[in-house]
Amino acid sequence: MATRARRTQRRNQVLSREHIIDTAIELLDAGGEGALTVRALTERLATGSGAVYYHVGTRDELLDTATETVITAALATKPAQASATPAEEIRAVALALFDAIADHQWLATRLTLQIIRNPVGPVTVGVFERIGRQMGALGVPQARWFDAASTLVHYILGAVSQNARIEGDTSGVEPAADREEFLGATSAAWQELNPEDYPFMHAIVGQITEHDDREQFLTGIAIVLDGLTRLR
């Protein structure tokens, strides 16, 4: 019994919380939430389930921690310029979140769940604080700070989620489907619409295959920011 206890102690000393979280993120990136099981994690780490529970708790707690780890790193992103404007600060964190979800397809669902389920958690508070602290500098009246920050956060979450594969999607679209092929098929389908009934769709049909997702995302940020400055 004493020998077993010493082995467990040595293993727990080597197996850090950070290593477990990093490995969990690797599994999530490779196969989504379905790939993250305690069995898969223990096999990858060559350890027992007790060590995992000891360091990170349940699977749901591990998912929350993995989400927090990725989002915290994204929120730490700073603009390239040392003396950045409030708009540049917001664009920097917005793009960091956009890129984080592009790199971690499972993250869109988990981030949304965190915002909804845990309003006092580090993810929700971190996102709102990083965005919201720029409201005063933008000239938004304090009485409108919550509405203004919420509008930006809702746009960012909605836009980045739209560009990610949502966990549980049953549309039949493969997560690795070729973007150009998908947009080309969509453009061709829109061209088949009756131009008298859908004049706008026909006017933009050539733009869908040429647009850049990140540039489109930044255009949306610019539109929201322009609207916020008018609250003054």
Score class of each variant (00 low, 15 high):
Ala96Phe: 01
Leu228Ser: 07
Pro79Ser: 08
Leu95Trp: 01
Ala96Thr: 06
Thr37Leu: 08
Ala159Lys: 09
Glu174Ala: 14
Pro195Ile: 02
Pro119Trp: 00
Arg4Val: 11
Gln13Val: 04
Arg11Gln: 13
Thr77Ile: 02
Ala73Asp: 11
Ala185Phe: 00
Asp60Ile: 04
Gln9Cys: 04
Gln142Glu: 15
His211Thr: 10
Phe200Ser: 09
Ile221Arg: 09
Gln142Cys: 00
Ala177Trp: 01
Asn12Glu: 13
Thr170Ser: 09
Thr58Ala: 12
Ile115Gly: 04
Asp226Leu: 03
Ala177Ile: 03
Asp178Tyr: 01
Ala46Ser: 13
Leu36Cys: 08
Ala84Met: 06
Ser171Met: 05
Val70Glu: 06
Val125Arg: 15
Ala76Leu: 07
Ala100Glu: 07
Ala177Asp: 09
Asn12Ala: 10
Gln134Ala: 12
Ala185Asp: 12
Asn194Phe: 00
Asp212Ile: 01
Gly126Lys: 08
Arg232Asp: 12
Gly132Arg: 06
Arg7Phe: 02
Leu231Pro: 08
Phe200His: 08
Gln114Val: 01
Ala102Leu: 11
Trp145Ile: 02
Glu167Ala: 13
Glu129His: 11
Met201His: 09
Ala159Gln: 12
Gly57Asp: 14
Val70Phe: 01
Arg110Val: 02
Pro141His: 03
Glu215Ala: 12
Leu152Val: 11
Gly121Asp: 11
Glu61Asn: 06
Ile115Thr: 06
Thr219Gly: 10
Gln142Thr: 06
Leu152Phe: 01
Ala24His: 03
Asp60Tyr: 00
Ala74Tyr: 01
Phe98Cys: 02
Leu28Gly: 12
Ile21Ser: 09
Gln134Asp: 09
Gly158Lys: 07
Gly227Leu: 09
Gly136His: 05
Ala76Gln: 14
Ala189Cys: 02
Arg117His: 10
Asp212Cys: 07
Ile223Asp: 14
Glu61Phe: 00
Val52Thr: 10
Ile115Glu: 11
Val140Trp: 05
Gly132Cys: 05
His104Thr: 07
Ala76Val: 04
Arg230Asp: 11
Arg230Glu: 15
Arg133Met: 08
Ala73His: 05
Ala143Glu: 15
Lys78Met: 13
Val38Gly: 15
Gly172Gln: 06
Gly121Cys: 08
His19Leu: 15
Gly139Thr: 10
Trp190Thr: 13
Glu18Gln: 15
Leu97Tyr: 01
Leu218Met: 12
Thr67His: 04
Gln81Ser: 14
Ile25Lys: 09
Ala76Met: 07
Gly139His: 10
